[in-house]
């Protein structure tokens, strides 16, 4: 399988703190790749580097072999990297329908149209409906996002990233903080993502990781400790040491 996303010797320092240390990660096309590691290992920092929210101190990032290290976040989205956030980052005053419409219009290149009414383009509306249904948002689609139940917001968070039609989808703890009752809906949605979308998942929940991922990388103190198939990782004594040193939380 070809490599879609790769980092080469990625470094990120905040003053004296090393948040990413010589990370060279390769993600294969269509992979279900999980990134695990104890709290503070630098997982979210890595996502922020991949999406361009942070600039690396050193190293390169490649998408399909193309160097994207210098590109701005929105330019990377157009090339096919989308993400969700660990803490919901939504548009509080917009409805789910409008929220998805913004992302879809943008991707279809009509996000700057100022002379038509929003909602007047059939393609955008049809795709919004598709996403609304796929992510079980039909019952709340015209409510203000701010007042949605947390589980629905979490679904919208993923739907919004998915609306960018990413080739690589970065999921930052998609089930974090979701009550048990709504959890199943989210896990099922994540599992049902199309196979040609490459997924890089950050997660603390080991059940989810081992049921979902076909490849796992372990990040400790900003550096890659090891990488392999789930069975190999489960057996790896070094990984066990890291996780036994710190009780596996949630």
């Amino acid at each position: 399988m070809p490599i879609v996303l790769a980092t080469e010797n990625l470094d990120k320092r905040f003053g004296g703190i090393v948040a990413a240390n010589d990370v060279s990660l390769q993600v294969e096309h269509g992979a279900r790749h999980a990134l695990i590691g104890p709290n503070g290992a630098g997982k979210t920092t890595l996502i922020n580097l991949l999406t361009g929210v942070l600039k690396p101190t050193a190293g390169r990032i490649r998408l399909d072999g193309r160097d994207i290290t210098e590109l701005k976040p929105h330019e990377r989205v157009r090339l096919g990297i989308a993400r969700t956030f660990q803490i919901n980052q939504l548009f509080a005053d917009l409805t789910p329908l409008e929220t998805l419409g913004v992302a879809i219009s943008e991707r279809q290149g009509s996000g700057r149209d100022w002379w038509r009414l929003a909602g007047s383009k059939k393609g955008v509306v049809e795709e919004s409906i598709e996403l609304i249904e796929r992510f079980h948002l039909a019952d709340v689609m015209s409510e203000r996002t701010a007042i949605l139940p947390y589980g629905k917001q979490r679904l919208l968070e993923i739907a919004l990233a998915f609306a960018c039609r990413p080739r690589v989808l970065l999921l930052d703890e998609p089930a974090a903080g979701v009550p048990e009752a709504e959890r199943h809906e989210i896990l099922a949605t994540v599992a049902a993502l199309p196979k040609d979308v490459t997924v890089l998942l950050i997660e603390h929940d080991m059940d989810l990781v081992f049921s979902f991922a076909d490849r796992i990388s372990v990040l400790v103190n900003g550096a890659l400790l090891t990488e392999g198939a789930p069975e190999a990782i489960a057996r790896d004594p070094n990984v066990r040491a890291v996780y036994l040193g710190e009780a596996i939380d949630a």
């Binding site: 999406t51 929210v53 701005k72 976040p73 929105h74 989205v77 157009r78 989308a82 993400r83 956030f85 980052q89 939504l90 548009f91 509080a92 005053d93 917009l94 913004v102 992302a103 943008e106 991707r107 996000g111 919004l160 990233a161 609306a163 960018c164």
Partner: peptide, 13 residues
């Protein structure tokens, strides 16, 4: 509403 997210869906803020 949220410039961080806006740029994460491809909008040039």
């Amino acid at each position: 509403g949220n410039p961080l997210r806006a740029s994460a869906v491809g909008i040039s803020v």
